[in-house]
Design a protein around this nucleic acid. Sequence first.
DNA 1: TTCAGCCTGTCG
DNA 2: CGACAGGCTGAA
Length: 276
Amino acid sequence: MPELPEVETIKKNLESKLIGQKLKNIIVFNQDFILKNKIKNLNTIVNTKLLSIKRKGKYLIFFFEKETLLFHLGLTGSFNLFSNKDKEEITEKEKKHFILNFQFETHELVYSDIRKFGKIRKARIEEISTLKELKNLGKDALEIDFEEFKTIFLKRNRNIKNLLMDQKVISGLGNIYVNELLFRAQISPFKNSKDLKEKEIKKLFFQMKKLLKEAISFRGSSIKNYVDAQGKKGEFQNRFLVYGKKNMVCLKCGESLRYQKISQRGTFYCPNCQSI
DNA sequence: TTCAGCCTGTCG
DNA sequence: CGACAGGCTGAA
């Protein structure tokens, strides 16, 4: 579900409410999920303060005084902040997917996950960078500079869409934003990375930065499930040019947009604007 | 590099 | 009912 812009939006929400607060208690709603993630002694972070929250790619890392919690939201993971007054408005339907409730001084932070593809890791601060989830992660799409971005395409012989979605190569982009990015950069999703010209790599780089910043400014994209930590939908789905627009008219050229799977992922593109 | 598998929900 | 969904992994 959440790609870089959605995770960044959630991070901002949480930072503004929770930084510096002491975690008073944790309630586990779904013990199976905790077991599956091999989380032991979750309670050792209780009675310590949340010092900072960092994002890398689609991961969120909560830094407590001695330990850290790493989250990946999978497809349907979500955080929800509740103050005491809006707790009564929680529906049974929402409760059904609650995994964890972190009770801070002024707010409760609930992690929910409908499909339970999300991931949690716990590590001491000094161990965090040794987690395989982070060790194998490519540079964050917002942080990478052009020189580094260019090297992604050297010596690689792969489908461009798969390459950009590979978190080990560059982290943060998912299916929505790669579809949108390739359209905006006017590059075919079927193109091989080795065939990109320097000019196209430049275009891809600048469009990527622009797209992600724009999406963040609209607080991410909500297709079905995504809401930010305040329960609000994003707005960037209203700015999509191709994603979810099979058979609709291309706003640039009027051609009918196509849909086809590439490596099992739905791919939307304009055959005219994005010719090979 | 493909493909099932992990899960639940929705849409046609 | 099958197809599909903002992701990722591990096995063939």
